[in-house]
Design a protein around this nucleic acid. Structure first.
Lengths: 198, 198
DNA sequence: GGGTGAGGTTAACCACCGTTCACACTGTCG
DNA sequence: CGACAGTGTGAACGGTGGTTAACCTCACCC
């Protein structure tokens, strides 16, 4: 409202639509308190409107959470696919690419990381199924690479390995901002590679 | 009820008091759905009583959660202290002792691990402070060891390292039971050591 | 200039859930 | 036997919070 240039009707990263503002604010609040502890009034207040105004943009509070989690899973899966393709054939290079990608994502979106594994259970059954399917696909990308890194290890072991590496990298929200971003990124990536290749 | 030997009035691990049964059932339910999504009636039903019966054993639902989290933090802190003392002077041996301890704890109590970092925010302010203080003490035990393992690294970096290792080991609830317990324990411990010493 | 549609507001509705209450049952102890 | 403590029950209360309804306003456009 104060800034004149709102070209069309929609978002542009720097000038996000109301809908986008709501999703971002909700992600932040959900990460801090958990989705069930955050009221629609809280989300509204965070973007300067009242609670019921939310319903002009989302069918329900659950739909908001569903869209949030679906987007995260899709971004991770798409990003993983892309990075693997760009990394060439070497398993080590592919692993490094995946690690770097996931570290960047986690450092850029700590709130999303938190919500993703805390509030999955709050989704409706069909939404939860869809999100889990995307997550599974992403995990399997990692597993495929890890199987090539450890030719004599079982797939199950590689899957456990992948989850462990996710846990390591996703610890970011817990050790918030005490280290400069590049330092933190390098530390996490080194640890992740070491754990994944141990 | 089926087993005759209920010597005094109280618990004995195999024959836990009603109070203890409630805490265990609640931990399980809280881990599965999140404390705010679990009703008092659910907890009651899980031990074969109605919801209000809970109040014969706990002052409130929040008090239940508080006791649960306090116990976890205390067990971790006490266990860590004990294992370090028993490990001798070598930093590498102390690290190995901490890792083995934490891996065992996580594999034995996946539900508690989940609740601990998902529902801390649901605690009342004074309870949350107390739990965080215990957690911090436990983290600092790890940091002290890690500082000796990495003499030229900053304390802040070692703290981030500790959180990352926790994330790695605490991934257990996500990769539930596909691997035999000893295999899983060895895998996690090896990865944790590799990450911690990278 | 009046119809239209997008986006907000306030007030009300309603379901759910933590908590309390009044009462019942069962043992033990004096 | 009768008090009493411990534990459980069903019913009721009250707050919270998601959702809907009715109404308003403004930008836009033929």
């Amino acid at each position: 409202m104060t800034s004149p240039p709102d070209s069309a009707l929609h978002s542009d990263a720097a000038n996000p639509s109301r809908r986008e503002q709501i999703l971002r604010a909700a992600a932040q609040l959900f990460a801090e308190r958990g989705s069930r502890a955050v009221g629609v009034d809280d989300v509204g207040a965070a973007v300067g409107v009242t609670g019921p105004a939310i319903y002009r943009h989302f069918a329900s509070k659950d739909a908001m959470l569903a869209e949030m989690l679906l987007r995260i899973s899709e971004r991770l899966l798409a990003g993983g696919t892309e990075r693997i393709a760009a990394a060439g054939d070497s398993p080590a290079a592919q692993l490094r690419a995946l690690v770097d990608f996931h570290v960047d994502f986690a450092l850029d979106n700590p709130a999303l990381i938190t919500v993703q594994d805390r509030d999955l259970g709050a989704l409706s059954d069909p939404d939860a199924r869809r999100v889990r399917q995307l997550q599974r696909s992403y995990v399997e990308e990692w597993v495929a690479v890890l199987v090539r890194v450890h030719p004599d290890a079982s797939t199950a072991a590689c899957r456990a390995r992948a989850h462990a590496v996710f846990g390591l990298i996703n610890s970011t929200p817990h050790s918030a901002g005490r280290l400069a971003r590049p330092t933190m990124a390098a530390l996490l990536a080194d640890m992740a590679i070491a754990a994944a290749t141990a």
